[in-house]
Amino acid sequence: MKTSKPGSPKFWIPVLLIFCIAGGAGGYFFLGRYFRPQKQPVTATAVPVPTGNAQEEDLFNLRMFYPVGNRLEMIEKVLPRRTKKSAVIEAVIEEYFKGPGQGLTSCIPQNVKLLGLYKGADQILYVDLSDEVRRNFQGDALQEYLLLRGLYESLISNLEDISDIKILVDGREIETLGGHVYLKYTLKTAVSYEYKGDEEISLE
């Protein structure tokens, strides 16, 4: 059998190939370790969506904050342009209760309808939702908190002249949605705290 000698070009080709593969693997390992994304429980991360020819079709982007797992995920959604401010608010709320899509699971309750929107002289936006928001919510304390904070962030991020938000259900003030968070306060008060993530107990 004919074998390549160390001095010949045929010998160096597989050697070079091995080093290239080793270098590539090493580089991948290095990049994966040092540029791995950090877990940020409530930090928004933009998920790119195709924007298409927004100007030609007169589209606009909404920055939505959805509860996904133990954090809020920022997702941009593209919709046909609304000119009236109330239509923008309606769009934000409707999109929010449609859920994040993209295969992400969320604790957002199903079949919630927007019954009314009112704005007080104090720039507080009153959002009147159907009772499904309470009846169809199935979550624990953290999920309830993130659900309300996500709604608050989504509205505040897309509207300029709103100072705070108050949730009503079937036209009435409610004490709580899922038995954990107090909704007699406005959302700014109830969900202003930025959840910093879990501390796992280890028995080291």
């Binding site: 304390a141 705290y193 879990d198 107990i201 028995l203």
Partner: peptide
């Protein structure tokens, strides 16, 4: 954690 062996987390939230 000792009794069940499950993951146990501490959470701070304004409940």
């Amino acid at each position: 954690k000792k009794e069940f062996g499950n993951t146990v987390v501490i959470r701070e939230l304004p409940l």
